[in-house]
């Protein structure tokens, strides 16, 4: 959460009023369906896509709720790489991805996607530990630098696994699965506003169209 954003205070939760929103609801669905049909990745090749899919699912696995793959996180990552990454950042990310395979081949003589889940866990845990060390080195290395400077100078944000984790969280929690299944929000208008009342006691909670 960007705490400095004053606008955060005016950006509320989404909902759907039962009484007039049919068209808007349809519009939302339409866009969503367009997304659904545009499944072929634009930047990632099939191997890269398979690797991203495996890593994303390990970061946010299916538990009592679906995981990153079911939430179509890899598609979101491909979109960001395609539309927002500058060449340099994108290249950095993709070389981090290639490096994951290189480590995998060095240790287990096969690509990441072909490893057993135990081997994959070993590889990702190493990446996560390196990220932790990078973070600590950042703090230790510049004891006099203000937090602001550290934040600006930190290479943590250029670390492949950090970016992968962050994009997975963004893609997952802004997805339909993340919002409705994991965070438990009915994706419907919740009726007349009742104030601080448990949903179980709130009349109108099911008046969705």
């Amino acid at each position: 959460m960007k705490r400095r954003d004053a606008l955060k205070l005016i950006a509320g939760a989404a909902a759907l009023p039962a009484f007039y929103s049919q068209d808007l609801f349809a519009l939302g669905r339409e866009i969503h369906q367009q997304l659904a049909s545009a499944a072929a990745p634009k930047t990632l090749n099939p191997h890269q896509n398979a690797t991203i899919t495996a890593i994303a699912e390990m970061i946010i696995p299916a538990t009592d709720t679906p995981g990153a793959k079911a939430a179509r996180v890899p598609e979101f990552i491909d979109l960001i790489l395609t539309e927002w990454c500058t060449g340099d950042d994108c290249g950095q990310f993709l070389s981090g991805l290639a490096d994951t395979d290189a480590r995998s081949r060095k240790t287990f003589s096969k690509d990441f996607v072909d490893c057993s889940s135990q081997q994959q866990t070993e590889l990702l845990t190493a990446l996560d530990e390196e990220l932790t060390q990078l973070r600590e080195a950042n703090v230790r290395g510049r004891p006099h630098a203000s937090a602001a400077r550290r934040e600006l100078e930190t290479p943590v944000e250029r670390n492949f696994f950090y970016i992968m984790k962050r994009l997975t969280l963004i893609g997952y929690y802004t997805s339909e699965v993340g919002w409705t299944k994991e965070l438990g929000r009915p994706p419907v208008h919740m009726g007349p506003y009742q104030g601080c009342v448990p949903l179980a006691d709130a009349p109108g909670k099911t008046n969705a169209s």
């Binding site: 959460m1 939760a13 950090y162 929690y173």
Partner: peptide, 19 residues
């Protein structure tokens, strides 16, 4: 509120581990 982009950035930055 509805999660927006960056909602869990703090968790991402502060929490070690995955899964």
């Amino acid at each position: 509120f509805m999660p927006s982009v960056g909602e869990f950035d703090d968790v991402c930055e502060q929490f070690e581990g995955y899964g």
